[in-house]
């Protein structure tokens, strides 16, 4: 009887040790889940950080027609086999550029004529109408476009996926590319794991 009680207690202790209760973790830390077949939250952050480091290291925004120049975010295409919101990447880029003071990001000029903030666009138009003034030309000085692609490979049970995050900055007055960068993120393994 004593043996049985001891065995049950040991089993219970083992099971309790194995179960993992939900907990909050740092999204920028090392305890995040690493998947082999999809883009993880840390991949967006690492890619955005790498792209921004390159942009800030370049003279792209120097010699702009005004200071700070106005930047319009164009389109970011997801060419991977998994579906995700590209705005996760864009929001990292947009907020960092805004905080850096290197450029102002337009909320009323967007890809296909769509504004990020329709209310701001309408308010601006209404203000100009009421004042009887001609619309102020807020043509952006630069546009930013992007693309995310993937390359998959495998050897036996080991899977490998590389995500290529590309960004291009175009000077509107000349239509020429003034900065372009690609950040590769490669992950390899047989299954998803907890921790980087």
């Amino acid at each position: 009887m004593k043996k049985l009680t001891f065995s049950l207690m040991a089993a219970a202790a083992l099971l309790a040790g194995c179960s993992e209760e939900a907990q909050y973790i740092d999204s920028t830390g090392t305890s995040v889940v690493v998947s082999v077949d999809k883009v993880d939250i840390q991949d967006f952050k690492i890619a955005a950080d790498g792209l921004l480091q390159s942009l800030y290291d370049s003279p792209a925004f120097t010699n702009a027609p005004r200071t700070p120049p106005i930047l319009a975010i164009s389109k970011v295409t997801n060419d991977t086999s998994t579906q995700f919101e590209t705005d996760i990447l864009l929001s990292e880029i947009r907020s960092s550029i805004t905080r850096s003071g290197k450029a102002e990001v337009s909320a009323i000029i967007g890809y296909g004529g769509r504004a990020q903030d329709e209310m701001a666009k309408e308010a601006k138009a209404a203000g100009e109408f009421e004042a009887g003034s001609a619309p102020v030309n807020l043509r952006p000085d630069f546009t930013l476009t992007g693309k995310i692609m993937e390359v998959k490979a495998s050897a036996g049970r080991t899977k490998q996926v590389t995500y290529a995050f590309q960004m291009t900055l175009v000077r509107v007055s000349t239509g020429s590319i003034v900065w372009e960068e690609q950040k590769l993120i490669t992950k390899q393994g047989t299954k998803a794991a907890v921790g980087m």
């Binding site: 920028t28 830390g29 690492i46 950080d49 905080r99």
Partner: peptide, 11 residues
């Protein structure tokens, strides 16, 4: 620490 800047861990 710079506000709003959360640097990610990089491999």
């Amino acid at each position: 620490a710079l506000p709003g800047y959360n640097p990610p861990m990089k491999p």
